[in-house]
């Protein structure tokens, strides 16, 4: 028994940790979808950009400045993307906004490639969370333990914000009925901006945690976690925050179990197989609601 635990505990810990990181990205996807019915294809790239911002910031300034500044720059980027690429299309068909999101993703990827020259950049080590700890014979980085705690803390804060503040109430109203809440005098643009700001901030935190596990970043290294977080959001029922968090943890843990079984090649494919399976059996996801269309 203890052998079994000893062999598998590292995978389980890694799963929970990665799951937390996915959750932080997935919330961004799910909140934007809840409010704009938009699959924000650029969100994964914002996550990657956050990593590069961190790399370049850290080269010139101390950590206690570069960490908050990275978060601030990422938030500014998320805000700007919404204002420039999505806001002008608010009355356009929904497909146009999604295409615009794809265009932004394409632009950000090419921009990152241009700035880095396509080369991998070394990700800075953040003291303390990069240090090693040993729990019950399993040696791991501190970040593995910090991630789930920090994730849950942030999620609780977010839920409080949504349930108990005025802007949170506005967000709930807009996600229920866009048109009516506009008529009720809710400032739609403000709500949408706040949504993007929260999403980008969480993506920035997720990025810092995620890349602490790796030594280097490339322009494409954020694509896979971005996609998986997206799958997690769909799995949990897109539009639902608890759904996204639970979906992300399930995917993170399953992925590492598969790695433990020695099927590493399939850990990516598995995520998408899971997606197809959930779409077949419960298309609205674990916590999503079916919607009647008015005729």
């Amino acid at each position: 028994m203890s052998d079994f635990i000893r062999a598998n505990l590292p995978y389980l810990l890694a799963g929970i940790s990665v799951g937390g990181q996915y959750a932080l990205i997935a919330i961004g996807y799910t909140m934007v979808y809840g409010i704009l019915r938009l699959i924000n294809f650029a969100h994964g790239d914002i996550f990657t950009v956050a990593a590069f911002v961190m790399v370049y910031m850290n080269a010139t300034m101390p950590l206690y400045i570069s960490l908050p500044l990275t978060a601030a720059v990422t938030v500014a980027l998320g805000f700007a993307v919404e204002r420039v690429a999505y806001k002008p299309l608010r009355t356009a068909p929904r497909m146009s906004i999604m295409i615009s999101a794809i265009g932004v993703s394409y632009l950000l990827q090419n921009l990152m490639w241009y700035i880095t020259g396509g080369l991998a950049k070394q990700y800075p080590t953040i003291p303390w969370i990069s240090s090693s700890v040993t729990i019950y014979t399993a040696t791991t980085k501190m970040v593995t333990l910090v991630t789930p705690v920090l994730t849950l803390l942030l999620v609780i804060l977010l839920v409080q914000l949504i349930n108990h503040t005025k802007i949170g109430m506005a967000m709930r109203a807009v996600s229920k009925d866009f048109e009516t809440s506009k008529l009720m005098g809710i400032r739609i643009n403000q709500v949408i901006s706040v949504t993007f700001i929260i999403g980008s901030f969480l993506a920035a935190v997720g990025s810092m945690l995620y890349f602490s596990n790796y030594t280097a970043v490339t322009p494409v290294s954020g694509a896979m976690p971005g996609l998986k977080a997206f799958v997690a959001a769909v799995f949990g029922g897109i539009g639902s925050i608890p759904g996204a968090v639970i979906g992300a943890f399930i995917i993170g843990i399953c992925e590492n179990i598969i790695k433990a079984l020695g099927l590493t090649t399939f850990s990516d494919a598995f995520t998408f197989a899971l997606l197809i399976i959930i779409l077949i059996f419960k298309p609205s996801g674990l916590f999503g609601e079916a919607i009647y269309e008015k005729v």
Binding site: M98, L227, D268, A273, L275, L279
Partner: peptide, 10 residues
């Protein structure tokens, strides 16, 4: 959109 994107990756 989601499923086809996922399929292409699989």
């Amino acid at each position: 959109a989601i499923a086809t994107l996922g399929f292409a990756e699989i």
